[in-house]
Write a protein that binds this DNA or RNA. Structure first.
Length: 655
DNA sequence: TTAGGGTTAG
């Protein structure tokens, strides 16, 4: 096997590779770097140089050349050679260097070789080999311990990492805990589900005077929000009192955006621009803010941020560009997403996936598959994530044959073992198409444990195809996995209601009550002049609620004149017809649309976000509303987009 | 004279 041209990215350890041997090109590199073979320092300098220029393989080859040319050069060149083996994730090369270190007497006595050796084993995903070596080191100094601790974090052995840190505190004076050790400790505590770890580390660094260190505090900010306490308020408190740099602002905004707190993210962003003390907008923060817009469906704000991206000349930037694509597609403007996508200069696999997903969630399965084909033509090899996008697109568009085709091609042609996400798409696709037994069969043959999303997909399919028996099987599994999710109870009770099994409906409702499960109320939100307005069913908390209700009344009258008949079949309570009709009139999406209509002109686009599925009556109602009022309405619900235009739902995935 | 480091984006 030819040695790889570039080392694997450090954050993505790959499998062991063959030891690179010196090649003509690396000897050429040697020549270019003017190594003086007789000077030992010249060899180590060449290895270090090549490594820092990103060519770990050439660095290793140079070391191998030194072995033959000048044995005296090995001692200083060994640590950088070990780091090269780590960067190339070449365990075979690393093991040979380990043997050499033993032969030269550099291990375990030389701390420089020792720390580099641990680093190598951790980067090659061999934490237990690192541990064995670590245990042979008689009196590991703080640098070695920190190398060990960070390696544990890299390999997801966070508790081992924290144990080392605790031992570090206990063993000696606290002065051994320096900036590097504290950074590692906080990065570990961000990955641990226990509450209070971050707070106790916080107390410790305050004691040893690292509380003013921006790097350490930024890492702490992150671990407050991501660690066991999941405490964004604590993170905000730290943020408010610290000396903030650009990373602090970006981190806090990103934390809000990632946790769905879009209003907070956007608010903090404008605060940063106004009172941030000279902190300037950059690519990182724009990506985070675009994520917040995508989540909130804040298309107007998203457009403003996009303008900012253009002004800063960042349209071609792959990170920002992909965020723009994601924002537009999540806000229902898939054509705008495509325009932004075309502007990205060096599209990576995630840019392509974002675009495939964009078309997919809008039900444009054909376009999604065309983008996929284009990606393959460009020479990129689809990976695990790409196939999630592709299969999800097939599932949303109801492309049964294509879905089956790509599912098997993924395994056979591309050697990718399907994960829960792929199974989820396939179960959804097969289930919706009515192939319930095939879907159930697929679940039974899964090698990984089916998660709630899989059984949930089967359960929804059971509702569509009115299969009570399989629904009960799915629910049983779902309750084993998560008995507190109200959604499953609602679905099950709906399935019983549609089958007229009112006694069972009552039984489920009784369960919900006795188990103390709370169902989050559904809401619809609409953005107006950059401000988001929220509506619940029958909501009267809005400032203009009186106007909204009377507007809606008149609108419903006009709709009924145009032929709209309330679809009371979707009301799953045991009510009489009249009660059912009035229950439908105050659905949150109708309130939100009425409010948006009052504040818009014909020809405009109304964009609504719904946190639950849009009911079939509201779906019908929107068709009439678009016809009467000449507005385009886009509703994004839990699973898909509905574009209503000219009285038609152009969403092809309403199948 | 060759060691250990983390946080922000899709």
């Amino acid at each position: 096997m030819a040695p790889p041209l570039h080392p694997a990215p450090a954050s993505n350890p790959q499998r062991e590779r063959d030891v690179p041997t010196p090649t003509t090109s690396s000897l050429h590199a040697l020549f270019l770097r003017a190594v003086d073979p007789s000077r030992p320092a010249s060899w180590s300098a060449a290895v270090t140089d090549l490594l820092s220029s990103g060519d770990a393989v050439a660095a290793l080859a140079t070391f191998a050349a030194a072995v033959r040319a000048n044995p005296a050069a090995l001692r200083p060149a060994l640590p950088p050679a070990l780091r090269a083996a780590a960067a190339a994730t070449s365990l075979a090369a690393g093991r040979q260097l380990h043997l050499l270190a033993l032969r030269l007497g550099l291990f375990p006595s030389d701390p420089y070789s020792a720390s580099a050796l641990l680093h190598m084993y951790h980067h090659c995903s061999r934490p237990m080999d690192a541990r064995r070596a670590f245990d042979e080191i008689p009196d590991p100094n703080p640098v070695i311990v920190t190398a060990m601790a960070s390696g544990y974090v890299r390999n997801n052995l966070v508790y081992h990492s924290l144990d080392l840190f605790r031992a570090m505190i206990a063993s000696d004076s606290a002065s051994v805990v320096d900036e590097a050790a504290a950074l590692v400790a906080f990065s570990a505590s961000a990955r641990v589900p226990d509450r209070g770890v971050t707070a106790s580390l916080h107390a410790l660094i305050a004691k040893i005077g690292l509380e003013k260190n921006a790097g350490v505090v930024n890492t702490m900010l992150d671990s407050y929000a991501k660690g066991g306490s999941r405490d964004l308020e604590a993170a905000r408190k730290v943020f408010d009192t610290m000396e903030r740099d650009v990373v602090s602002w970006n981190s806090m905004i990103a934390l809000y955006a990632q946790n769905g707190m879009s209003a907070e993210a956007l608010g903090l962003y404008s605060k940063m621009l106004n009172v941030g003390g000279g902190i300037k907008c950059n690519a990182v923060v724009l990506s985070a803010v675009l994520l917040a817009c995508a989540h909130a469906g804040a298309i107007q704000t998203g457009k403003r941020i996009h303008n900012q991206v253009v002004r800063m000349g960042l349209e071609e930037n792959v990170y920002v560009g992909t965020s723009v694509v994601d924002m537009y597609s999540k806000c229902g403007r898939v054509e705008m997403a495509n325009k932004a996508f075309r502007k990205i200069k060096e599209k990576n696999i995630l840019s392509w996936s974002a675009m495939i997903t964009g078309y997919g969630i809008h039900g444009h399965g054909q376009e999604a598959l065309e983008i996929f084909a284009e990606m393959k033509r460009s020479g990129l090899r689809p990976n695990y994530i790409t196939f999630i996008s592709v299969l999800a697109a097939c599932s949303h568009a109801g492309h049964l044959d294509e879905g089956r085709h790509w599912y098997s091609a993924m395994k056979q042609e591309f050697g990718i073992e399907p994960g829960v996400e792929h199974y989820g798409c396939m179960v959804d696709l097969l289930g919706r198409a009515g192939c319930l037994d095939e879907a159930y069969g697929l679940i039974k043959e899964m090698k990984v444990k089916p998660d709630a999303a899989i059984w949930g997909a089967l359960l929804s399919a059971c509702r569509i195809h009115k299969n009570v028996e399989l629904a009960e099987i799915s629910v049983k599994r779902l309750f084993e996995l998560d008995a507190t999710n109200s959604g499953y109870y609602v679905l099950l009770s709906n399935i019983y209601a549609e089958a007229g099994m009112w006694k069972d409906v009552e039984r489920v409702r009784f369960l919900v009550k006795t188990r103390g499960i709370e169902k989050p109320p559904g809401y619809s939100s609409v953005e107006l002049k950059g401000k988001t307005h929220l509506f619940y069913v029958g909501d009267k908390s809005h400032r203009q609620h009186k106007e909204i209700y009377s507007y809606l009344e008149k609108l419903l009258e006009r709709m009924q004149e145009a032929g709209y008949v309330p679809n009371t079949g979707s009301v799953l309570h045991d009510l009489d017809e009249e009660e059912k009709e009035s229950a439908l009139r105050i659905h949150s999406e109708k309130l939100a649309v009425a409010f948006a209509l009052m504040n818009s002109v014909p020809g405009s686009v109304i964009h609504i976000i719904k946190n639950l599925r849009v009911c079939s009556d509201c779906h019908t109602a929107m068709k009439f509303i678009t016809k009467i009022t000449e507005r385009e309405i886009i509703i994004r619900d839990l699973q898909r987009f509905h574009h209503f235009k000219d009285g038609l739902c152009s969403c092809r995935d309403y199948w």
